[in-house]
Amino acid sequence: MSATNIYASTEIKAVAFDLGGVVFSAGKEVAKQSWERRGYDSTLIRQLLISAESMQLRTGKMDDDTFWNVFFKKNVPDTYDVDLIKKLWYDGYVADLDIQMVIQSLRANGIKVVAFSGNISSRIDYLENKYNIRRFFDEEVYSFDYGYTKPDDRFVEALIQKVFPKAPKDKLADYGKHIFYIDDNPKDAEPALKYNIPTFIYQRGNIEPLRKKFDELGINVRASFMSLPIK
């Protein structure tokens, strides 16, 4: 099916993917066991990683060094190896090969693929060094570049304007319907609905409902492609 036919039947011109929990496993959930094996309080660590200060880090309002070496160290026992905690968290991002195949199929069909993530600059650098992830995306929208993160409406507006740079500010919802957005968190996905963006809540390891959703949209992601593993 040509890209022209796809657009005519679905109006979807771009698919936006969350990273943690979709393109990759949810890092905190994977790292939890590694932290606990070392005797660290995973509940405390998680609280710090979703704190107001962590939101400042994600939105580029606090730098990496201040977050880890000042804020984080001040709030954990002296015996905790903060560098190791950070590394185990970043290592918890494991590529989802089912989603990787979907991304390849979309790009082969001429659909733009967008990374849309409330994330940390140093973690994106880590993922790029480890997996070369940027080769999979046509566009990238990260919270630290915009000063907003999920579930802020303004972050959704940044996504629409990244995909459609000429979209008028008062017409963003007219353009939003051309983007399909996949996340693992209903709360984070909810603001997109205000802009007519169709959303899908993905459960890692359960790819078939997502494939069926693409079938409904008239987009074929079932074709057999030779996998290009993220290495």
Rank of each mutant, 00 (worst) to 15 (best):
I219T: 02
Y175E: 01
D64S: 13
S121Q: 11
T66N: 06
I207K: 03
I85R: 00
K86P: 02
D96F: 13
L49W: 06
D98E: 14
R46G: 05
L97A: 15
E128A: 03
A158Y: 03
R134H: 14
D215T: 09
F180K: 01
K231C: 14
P209R: 03
T199W: 02
K74Y: 02
L97N: 12
P191A: 01
K112F: 04
P209M: 12
E11T: 00
I197T: 00
D170R: 06
L57F: 05
S51H: 08
V22Q: 04
Q104I: 12
D125C: 08
A223W: 04
M55H: 08
N119S: 13
S105K: 05
I182Y: 13
F200G: 02
M62N: 11
E128C: 10
G92D: 10
P186T: 00
L228K: 15
I124A: 10
S54I: 04
F180P: 15
F116W: 12
V76R: 01
F180Q: 08
V76Q: 04
M55A: 05
R134F: 15
E190S: 01
A192R: 00
E29P: 01
N75G: 11
S34C: 11
P151N: 03
S143Y: 08
D145H: 07
I85Y: 04
Q203K: 11
I85H: 01
F71S: 07
W68M: 07
N75C: 13
A16Y: 05
L228P: 09
V114E: 02
Y146F: 06
G147A: 01
S42Y: 07
F24P: 15
I182F: 11
E190F: 07
L84F: 11
F155Q: 03
D91M: 09
F214G: 08
I85D: 00
V102H: 05
I120Y: 04
S227K: 15
